[in-house]
Amino acid sequence: MSSRTDRRTFLRAATAGTAALAFSGSLWQSAAAAAPGAAADGPYGPLLAPDANGVALPAGFAARVVARSTHMVGGTLWHSAPDGGACFADGAGWIYVSNSELPLIGGASALRFRADGTLDRAYRILSGTNLNCAGGATPWGTWLSCEEIFRGRVFETDPYGNRPAVSRTAMGRFKHEAAACDPDHRVVYLTEDEDDGCLYRFTPDVWGDLSRGRLDVLCTTSGDAVEWRPVPNPSAPFTQTRHQVDAARHFDGGEGCHYSNGVCYFTAKGDRKVWAYDTNSSTVRALYGGDGTLNGVDNVTGTAAGDLYVAEDGGNMEINIITPDSVVAPVLRLDGQGESEITGPAFSPDGSRLYFSSQRGTSGERTGSGGITYEVRGPFRH
Rank of each mutant, 00 (worst) to 15 (best):
Leu104Tyr: 06
Val284His: 03
Arg68Asn: 10
Phe113Trp: 05
Ala346Gly: 15
Gly371Pro: 01
Ala40Gly: 13
Thr221Trp: 11
His258Ser: 10
Thr373Phe: 01
Leu111Glu: 03
Ile149Pro: 02
Ala115Met: 06
Arg285Phe: 12
Thr279Asn: 07
Ala247Gln: 15
Pro345Ile: 00
Leu119Trp: 10
Tyr309Lys: 05
Gly253Ser: 11
Arg124His: 14
Ala137Val: 11
Arg168Ser: 14
Val274Ala: 03
Ala89Val: 10
Ala276Arg: 02
Pro204Asp: 11
Leu218Trp: 00
Gly54Trp: 00
Phe347Cys: 05
Gly60Val: 11
Glu147Gln: 12
Glu318Thr: 13
Gly42Thr: 00
Arg114Gln: 15
Phe202Thr: 00
Arg163Thr: 15
Ala86Asp: 06
Glu375Ile: 09
Ala134Asn: 02
Leu218Arg: 01
Ala122Ser: 09
Trp228Asp: 05
Gly306His: 06
Arg285Gln: 10
Cys219Ala: 10
His382Asp: 13
Gly351Cys: 05
Ala236Glu: 10
Pro237Tyr: 13
Ala248Phe: 10
Ala86Ser: 13
Arg12His: 14
Thr267Phe: 02
Gly270Met: 04
Phe202Trp: 08
Glu156Phe: 01
Ser352Gly: 14
Cys219Asn: 05
Thr367His: 05
Ser167Pro: 04
Ser69Lys: 03
Gly306Thr: 07
Ala19Phe: 03
Pro139Glu: 10
Cys219Trp: 04
Gly302Lys: 02
Cys198Ile: 02
Tyr277Arg: 01
Trp140Ile: 08
Ala346Tyr: 06
Ala56Gln: 09
Trp228Val: 08
Lys273Phe: 01
Ser2Pro: 10
Val327Gly: 01
Arg186Val: 14
Gly60Cys: 11
Pro345Val: 04
Val310Gly: 04
Ala13Phe: 12
Asp335Val: 15
Asp278Tyr: 04
Ala329Arg: 06
Glu156Gln: 11
Ala86Asn: 09
Ala62Leu: 03
Gly338Ser: 12
Asp313Pro: 07
Leu199Asp: 02
Glu148Asn: 14
Asp90Pro: 04
Trp207Ala: 07
Ser109Leu: 07
Gly253Glu: 08
Tyr265Trp: 13
Asn99Tyr: 02
Ile342His: 00
Val188Leu: 12
Gly254Ala: 15
Ser69Cys: 09
Gly378Asp: 05
Val73Pro: 00
Arg153Trp: 15
Ser24Phe: 08
Ser2Thr: 09
Trp28His: 09
Arg114Glu: 11
Gly302His: 06
Ala268Thr: 14
Gly364Leu: 11
Trp143Asn: 02
Thr157Asp: 01
Ala19Ser: 11
Arg112Lys: 11
Gly213Lys: 01
Ser26Met: 06
Ala110Ser: 09
Gly213Trp: 10
Cys257Ala: 15
Ile321Asp: 02
Glu365Gln: 06
Asn295Thr: 15
Phe61Asp: 03
Pro234Ala: 07
Gly107Val: 05
Gly292Thr: 12
Leu102Asn: 03
Ala39Arg: 05
Phe23Val: 00
Arg7Cys: 00
Thr70Trp: 06
Gly364Trp: 08
